[in-house]
């Protein structure tokens, strides 16, 4: 459960990072920050939250 919550928080963190790109100067720096935020959000969902579910997957029982 805790891992799932952490994963969701990482998702939200990724969104915050991406949105913070509006405050960065230089369009290519903005691109990097926005992309980083997207990737962090993806890691939260596909890695952390998913790993929490895989820990007690039905095929492991």
């Amino acid at each position: 459960m805790i891992l799932k919550v952490i994963g969701l928080l990482v998702c939200l963190l990724g969104w915050l990072i991406a949105v913070s790109s509006v405050e960065v100067s230089g369009v290519y720096a903005q691109l990097v920050v926005a992309l980083a935020g997207f990737i962090v959000a993806g890691v939260g969902a596909l890695v952390i939250v998913n790993r929490a579910h895989l820990q007690d997957a039905i095929w492991k029982s």
Partner: peptide, 11 residues
């Protein structure tokens, strides 16, 4: 567009 993508994955 990337902010939109991050919103989809994050929010």
């Amino acid at each position: 567009q990337l902010i939109g993508c991050a919103t989809l994955m994050g929010i």
